[in-house]
Write a protein that binds this DNA or RNA. Structure first.
Lengths: 153, 153
DNA sequence: TCGATCACTGCGCAGTTTGAGCACTCAGAG
DNA sequence: CTCTGAGTGCTCAAACTGCGCAGTGATCGA
């Protein structure tokens, strides 16, 4: 991942907008209507922006892991701050149950993942980590589709 | 989630493009250069498209769960097909370790989640499910940032 | 039943962006 | 020393945006 591409992907996030005219043609609605609907979604906070869809595998990150962290009492905040510094940690969720944090981590190789996990482990307050590797990801979607809407009372 | 908004979000995925001219100004590069770089990323498969960023909470889906499924021998394919029919199941990963599948599931409420899990449980071949709820998600990013690039040899 | 409101439509116009092409420079590789 | 690739600067018609304004039909409360 060269820095140029990185800047590009970052910049894309900020300059990407839907083509309202084409959208209106596809949906069979007036441009004004589509624009108003988009505005409504944005104002409601549902539509928070636009992002490039990045194929991590094509980017060289072919390893995906879900790692559960157990944290010592009251150490969550600094641990999260530490995790935020590790680029390969894409998501962190505070969770219920035996673990405390669930992280989504990408790496180029298994060795690289090992390296990342070591950087995680040295964070003060981490008691234990458990990782599972994702082998394939047969389902990937952004949001619940119309099926869900149809089920509503 | 009304059907109109759904169509809109779906259509946005297909009609959204970055503003290359503005991007070039921000990056201090020529428009041609930026366009060529974007083409390169697309052709390389790294940049797979553009998507709206949807705030699931604002959309009414305030519950996020990670559910691990244990599947009976050789039943994975039909189970995955069944999961694909459930709109609330946003991601499914085949994983290593004790579980077989890890799912990311959203729901409007805990009751709704309960309902979704019941729909999951009735799929033939599911032996056991274990769910953890995500309370907060302090880190959320799309891809490893420049930090990772700087670390490369 | 009347008037208000709302979602949607259609039109228009100035300004911006796109897509495509061409010519040029510059640095590195063979 | 030449070739090649990356980047630049320019041009043009066509497309799209942002914005405003006027009109229609349906719904709803008084």
């Amino acid at each position: 991942m060269d820095p140029r591409s990185h800047d590009l992907l970052l910049g894309i996030t900020e300059t990407t907008r839907p083509n309202v005219l084409e959208l209106s043609r596809r949906l069979g609605l007036a441009r004004n209507t589509v624009q108003a609907n988009i505005d409504r979604l944005q104002n409601g906070g549902v539509l928070a922006g636009y992002e490039p869809v990045v194929d991590l595998a094509a980017m060289g990150y072919s390893v995906l892991a879900f790692t559960t962290l157990e944290i010592a009492q009251g150490q969550e905040r600094p641990v999260i701050a530490g995790l935020a510094e590790i680029a390969e940690v894409l998501e962190t969720h505070k969770i219920t149950g035996p673990g405390d944090l669930l992280c989504r981590i990408v790496a180029r190789t298994n060795e690289h993942l090992h390296d990342v996990l070591e950087r995680v482990l040295v964070l003060p307050g981490i008691v234990r980590t458990t990782s599972v590797l994702a082998l394939t990801s047969p389902i990937l979607q952004m949001h619940p589709s119309a099926i869900a809407a149809a089920e509503l009372p």
